[in-house]
Amino acid sequence: MNSREKILQAVKLAQPEVLPLPTALETPTVYSDPVVKFTEVAQAVGSSVIEVNSLEAIEDHLKEVYLPELQKKWQASGKLRVVSTSVGFENFAEQIDSSDIDPHTFQDVEVAIMKADLGVAENSALWVPETIIRVLPFICQHLILLVDKKTIVSNMHQAYERMGLGQDDYGAFIAGPSKTADIEQSLVLGAHGPRSLWIYLIGDVE
């Protein structure tokens, strides 16, 4: 008998009669205004949130506020490599549209702009499916995620209900910049992944 059969056999012998699966939760918490809750939680976990109404508004904000602040706060100087997997930022960021690029070549990316499919109010997690380069939201120094306000749900149950079984080969819920508190429980942002996360909540596009 190989190990597969051995294990399955042992498990079969050891497991009790089948017990039923429970029903779904009766009334998980929902928020009257999920966007408000989302913003509150996102800020609490170290993200910055800004509401906008058009792609142009994002671009303006990026140029006028985000980048100058980034340079000031992180003392980033020289030409910063900004990449985007989301269309519409061509005159501003390097557009990535081929997955044939070696992921290692993104190690010098300062800012990555990507789209999230959905947000969850209770924990500010954003669902980021694989968009062309899997490592991008992790390897960049700073991450920007764009999400449609209408997609913000209250809790994780609703999120998975929306997502169903999913078509993505890979995807991650991302909630905040990467962090660690391994040294004496002192919180430090920027462990291995991004040092900051900006979230653009896109409202009704005029």
Binding site: V45, N123, Y170, G171, G176
Partner: peptide, 14 residues
């Protein structure tokens, strides 16, 4: 924390 920073779903290899 309300959730970890990353909850990554690995389905298929890159």
């Amino acid at each position: 924390q309300p959730i970890t920073t990353y909850s990554s779903h690995f389905k298929k290899p890159r």
